[in-house]
């Protein structure tokens, strides 16, 4: 057992606050990007419309054009989510700030680990700070391959909330682990749980946007007015659904491992691999909901909006499991670190 280093712990808290501050600025930049880019797009539309002497292509050709990608007349971003040629200065600033933030955040996580002399995920404060870090890293990694900057406000906004909640509501000073948590299974089981949750966070955002986008597409197809201009930056509903499905499959496999490794650990710690402890119940519920989601994707009449709802419900269960169950339900897993 490594000794505790309080100074490192204090550095860590400072880094966390600095990271939260940097993210907040990045969040503003992402929001600015959404507002500005949609204005730019509209201007392009208007110019094109003026040139063609036709009204802005609202509902002119049914749903076909809605999904069509292209600079002028585009109502949604490209469906392949690849980077397009046009420059979005605010978005670049936002990503740069996010990278700066994640570096500081990483320093916070590492100093926390050094301060406590162990992996930094042993109580709620640490789950939140490390979880937010993983979520941002996953987001940035996804950005390397796909232009998901339209998710920036959401992911970075959530990271800010997590960091603030950690510092305000769940703050716990560096400390040793209780014996029940002293196991290499903590490293395996919780890291996979945090990683899967980060992926579920991305798909939750995409599913929520998918619902909005599909509503908007329907309105537009029916000849309605586009009230959600910023959604032009967001790909069409089907592309969102397909990408979030692919991420969800990875997260589901991760969650399956979370469940299994949790069971193996429970066997090591308490002598039974499954005992319907509250935490186990909710891990199971989440797993079944996402299994339902995967089934829904293969069931006619359940793809699209309904599947998106299941993905959202699944994520709400993840949140519930983390907040309410950890704090207010009594069980063997009482490790919130709160008294």
């Amino acid at each position: 057992m490594f000794p505790i280093n309080e100074t490192m712990g204090q550095y860590s808290e400072l880094f966390m606050l600095l990271a939260a501050g940097t993210y907040t600025v990045a969040f503003v930049a992402f929001a600015w990007d959404l507002a500005k880019s949609s204005k730019t797009l509209r201007a392009v539309d208007l110019k094109a419309a003026a040139a063609a002497k036709v009204p802005v292509a609202v509902g002119s050709a049914g749903s076909e054009t809605v999904t069509a990608a292209g600079p002028a007349g585009a109502r949604t971003a490209g469906s392949d989510m690849r980077y397009a040629a046009e420059r979005r200065a605010p978005a670049r600033v936002a990503v740069a700030l996010t990278i700066l933030g994640v570096l500081i955040h990483g320093a916070g996580v590492v100093t926390r680990a050094i301060g406590a002399g162990r992996v930094p995920w042993g109580n709620m404060y640490e789950f939140l700070t490390t979880g937010a870090f993983v979520a941002v890293v996953v987001f940035l990694l996804a950005l390397v391959r796909r232009d998901l900057r339209f998710l920036g406000t959401f992911v970075i906004g959530l990271a800010v909330i997590m960091l603030v909640a950690a510092s305000v509501a769940y703050w716990t000073p560096v400390g040793h682990l209780v014996p029940a948590l002293q196991s290499y299974w903590l490293v395996i089981h919780v890291s996979i749980a945090v990683l899967s949750s980060a992926l579920f966070t991305l798909t939750f955002a995409m599913s929520a946007l998918q619902l909005v986008q599909s509503h908007r597409q329907k309105t537009l197809a029916a000849g309605g007015v586009d009230k959600l201009g910023f959604m032009r930056l967001v790909p069409d509903a089907l592309s969102l659904e397909n990408l979030s499905y692919r991420i969800n499959t990875v997260a589901f496999v991760g969650w399956t491992f979370t469940l299994m490794f949790g069971a193996i650990w429970a066997e090591k710690a308490w002598g039974r691999f499954w005992g319907w402890d509250t935490k186990e119940v909710w891990t199971f519920v989440i797993w079944v909901v996402y299994a339902g989601y995967l089934h829904a994707r293969a069931t006619r009449g359940w793809t699209g909006t309904r599947a998106a709802w299941l993905s959202i419900v699944g994520y709400l269960c993840v949140i519930f499991n983390f907040t309410i169950v950890n704090q207010f339900f009594n069980g063997l897993h009482s490790y919130s670190g709160l008294q």
């Binding site: 079944v288 339902g292 829904a296 069931t299 359940w302 299941l310 339900f329």
Partner: peptide, 18 residues
């Protein structure tokens, strides 16, 4: 469809135990 329905029902039914 039934499989999906039963799966979702299973998730709901597990909750009261917590």
């Amino acid at each position: 469809r039934t499989a999906l329905f039963l799966l979702l029902l299973l998730a709901v039914a597990a909750v009261p135990g917590s």
